[in-house]
């Protein structure tokens, strides 16, 4: 099957009536996702595109439609509030696409989520997709994915598409692909997603795509070493990045030796992960570990 989202997903989009929200919600529906509600304060009672009811608050939307996943397209200045609203309404899974949320706001959101059962994916991420269950919760191009048994977890957007495309071209399908986001503080970590893939009977192998900055990949390596028996293929990008400079993602800044690509690759190899020799060879490396 898959992790986190599947055919039972009932999607709610926060910011549905905005330009981005509207565009991507339509793509999610085309893919087959069950979009049940939108939330835009002030637009409650209207119907989006003659198809989907819009509510003023998340809790109204949940009461009326039973929505169980929230996808956020709210501008950066209001996105932390949107995450907290869906958490407060008891939604079990939130994916926040928004890029550029101030770090201090995410520090508080993270703290608030600590004792809640809600899982947050992102922010600053492409979302997640389970091809078999036709659940696309995000901005990734749906057509490059194909149902199968490899789980993909990544800090990046387009690089994840690159990896998925290589897999699909080799005839290797995906159970679920999760982009956890490029910010220094994100809701779900590599470890959270690895644990789900490890426990999913329908995931046979895992692809982990990391980058420079922080120590998230080392934490992932430690978890893999202790808990994961399924084959894991890894790629770390940013070998050529100079220290102290932000490579697009706010999280991709090398500060101290732990943040370097070399250090991350070393700890993943020690954990038994097969490292793709180059970004062009993610697919073939997965093919090797599966045979």
């Amino acid at each position: 099957m898959s992790i986190l989202v599947d055919k039972n997903t009932k999607l709610l989009v926060q910011g549905l009536t905005g330009r981005e929200g509207s565009f991507h919600a339509a793509r999610c529906m085309e893919y087959g996702t069950n979009l049940v509600a939108g939330v835009t304060p002030g637009r409650g009672g209207t119907i989006w595109e003659d198809k989907v009811p819009v509510f003023d608050t998340v809790s109204q939307a949940v009461d009326e439609t039973g929505a169980n996943v929230a996808l956020i397209f709210v501008p950066a200045a209001f996105a932390a509030d949107a995450i907290l609203e869906s958490t407060d309404a008891g939604i079990p899974l939130i994916a926040c696409i928004t890029e550029g949320i101030p770090v201090m706001e995410m520090v508080k959101v993270k703290k608030y989520l600590e004792d809640k059962s809600t899982k947050l994916i992102g922010p600053n991420c492409p979302g997640l997709i389970s091809p078999e269950g036709k659940a696309k919760i995000g901005i990734m191009p749906g057509n490059i994915h194909t149902p199968g048994r490899v789980g993909v977890v990544s800090r990046s957007g387009t690089l994840t598409y690159e990896a998925v495309n290589q897999l699909t071209e080799l005839g290797i399908g995906q159970s679920t692909c999760v982009g956890i986001g490029g910010d220094p503080i994100v809701g779900s970590s590599f470890v959270d997603i690895l644990e789900l893939f490890n426990n999913d009977p329908d995931t046979d192998a895992i692809v982990l795509i990391g980058e420079i900055g922080g120590t998230k990949e080392q934490e992932a390596a430690e978890y893999i070493r202790k808990n994961v028996d399924k084959p894991v293929v890894g790629l770390i990008v940013g070998t050529t990045a100079p220290p102290g400079r932000r490579m697009g993602h706010a999280g991709a800044i090398i500060t101290g030796s732990a943040g370097t690509a070399e250090e991350k690759v070393r700890s993943l190899i020690e954990a038994g992960v097969s490292i793709a020799p180059s970004p062009a060879e993610i697919g073939v490396t997965v093919q090797k570990v599966l045979t």
Partner: peptide, 20 residues
């Protein structure tokens, strides 16, 4: 490149091709 991760991957590919 479009996307930070793919941009870093592209830079790495350039350096693997003995260029910078």
């Amino acid at each position: 490149v479009n996307g930070a991760g793919l941009a870093m991957a592209t830079m790495d590919s350039i350096s693997m091709a003995d260029a910078m």
